[in-house]
């Protein structure tokens, strides 16, 4: 169905499209990781492609391969009703250099998807506005969806945050300062109604 999209992509980018394949009716293009964003922009803006909806982004880890991490993006075109799977391979054995350009400027919906891929697989997205963990907590060690993360691994206990780390006072604050709130009726120096 989107064979045409694949050939259009190949025609436009030539050597930057490393592999293409079609299986089970899904068209896949493996692209040069350095031109990730450029290709995404073309996919969105070209009138014959018009991929306007980001469907999914995830990382698939192949520890025996190099580059190790495959970042898989699925896009869909609501006007032309076709789909494409785009892949980029990043990261060496130790996941060094597992970086891609962020696509938030292309499709705003990938913001959380990129955060999730960062959280789960440890791929860094350059230029992401707010790249932090999303499903896990900030102190979590490692990236759970890598193949070498043992499923039964335990995580260290987290100490309480100090006030300087949290950036806010952690002691409970009294609800009212001395000059705030109701200044009548509760004043011990004034006759109280509660004794009646």
């Amino acid at each position: 169905m989107s064979e045409a999209a694949l050939s259009r992509l190949k025609q436009q980018f030539g050597a930057a499209i490393l592999e293409t394949s079609s299986s089970f009716g899904d068209e896949t293009a493996v692209v040069d990781a350095t031109r990730w964003k450029e290709i995404a922009l073309f996919l969105r803006d070209d009138s014959k492609l018009a991929f306007d909806m980001p469907i999914d982004l995830c990382g698939v880890d192949y520890p025996e391969r190099s580059p190790r991490m495959e970042v898989v993006l699925h896009v869909y075109s609501t006007s032309l009703r076709h789909r494409l799977r785009l892949k980029a391979r990043v990261g060496d054995d130790e996941m060094n250099g597992a970086e891609l350009d962020s696509l938030v400027a292309v499709w705003s919906g990938v913001e959380w998807l990129e955060r999730e891929t960062y959280d789960m697989s440890g791929v860094t997205f350059r230029g992401h506005p707010d790249l932090r963990r999303i499903l896990m907590y900030p102190e979590f060690e490692g990236h759970p969806l890598r193949r070498d993360y043992a499923a039964n691994r335990t995580q260290p206990l987290i100490p309480y945050r100090t006030e300087s780390e949290a950036g806010v006072p952690l002691e409970k604050l009294a609800p009212f300062g001395p000059d705030e709130g109701m200044s009548f009726g509760r004043n011990p120096h004034l006759p109280s109604h509660s004794e009646n």
Binding site: D52, I55, S108, G109
Partner: peptide, 20 residues
Amino acid sequence: KDAIALGWTGPCLRASGVDY
């Protein structure tokens, strides 16, 4: 348009008038 760019689907997208 915003809903599509966000990747919304289902009843929420259709409420914005996109027939998908």
